[in-house]
Amino acid sequence: MEINSTWQSTNDLLSLKFTTLTASRDGVLYAGTEGHGVVQFSPLRSWESASEGLPAQVHVYRLDWMETQLFASTSHGLYHLEDEIWQQTSVTDPCYAAIGWGDRFVLTENGLLCGNDDEWLPLAYRGKKTYDLLVTPHFIFLGYEDGVAFYDLFTGEWCSMPLHQAVTSLAIFNTMLVGTTERGGLIVGNNNGGFNQHRFDGMFLNRLVTHRGEVYVCANSGLYKLMRSEATLFCTR
């Protein structure tokens, strides 16, 4: 069964729980949801379903562009959009992000994969849930179910930094590696090979987003910008 419906009113949209948002070069806005696939909006049309080809009640974790192709990381695997129809790739495990950096990477419930639409091969941490990938000049950082791992581009080796909790998104803030955790907290690199952990009262942090050099925090109580004052780290609207 496929999802194929039009959202008739603002009230219909308010009933959706949005999980991810992205836009095409020609101004079409795409939003992923929990259980209702993908909806889209363009200047010439209202909000409407853009879920043809997706399974019913699918949870869309992320929408990502790799070059000019839109990918949906979902509870039913990885899909790509072709002629307004979602096509399933060979990745059928639940996946959380698709990232293009020279090669193409997919973060799945069964480890980090590398490849293309025809063949995705296991790269690291097979059997582990992998959530986010961050590329820097010297390292590739991975947020996964046990904490953080990094790949040294010079030595070609992976190294784990266990935190006994999943790290679900990553960013660089003031030259420090920061990340959100499955418990809604924030981890901050301490420049000694480890992390300090922070909690903000009344806030559950879901994801970090970097935009124009700033790090924004998507939380249960709204959108914030990550700031630092002397030795204090805080979020401001």
Rank of each mutant, 00 (worst) to 15 (best):
E2H: 11
T6A: 12
W7Y: 14
Q8G: 05
D12H: 11
K17H: 13
A23L: 07
S24D: 06
S24A: 04
D26V: 15
L29Q: 01
G32R: 08
G32M: 08
G32T: 12
G37W: 04
Q40L: 10
F41Q: 09
S51L: 03
G53R: 07
R62V: 06
R62L: 04
D64T: 03
Q69D: 15
S75G: 11
S75W: 05
Y79N: 01
I85V: 15
W86C: 01
Q88S: 15
S90V: 08
S90H: 02
A97K: 14
I99N: 00
D103K: 11
F105Y: 13
F105C: 02
T108K: 04
T108C: 02
E109V: 11
E109L: 12
N110C: 01
L112F: 04
C114R: 12
L121S: 12
G127K: 03
L142D: 01
Y144K: 08
D146S: 10
A149C: 05
W158C: 06
C159S: 09
A166Y: 04
L170Y: 06
F173D: 04
T175V: 15
M176G: 11
V178W: 09
V178P: 08
G179S: 11
G184I: 14
F195V: 05
N196M: 02
H198F: 14
D201R: 13
R207M: 07
L208H: 00
R212T: 04
G213Q: 01
E214D: 14
V217D: 01
S221I: 07
R228E: 14
S229T: 10
S229R: 12
A231K: 09
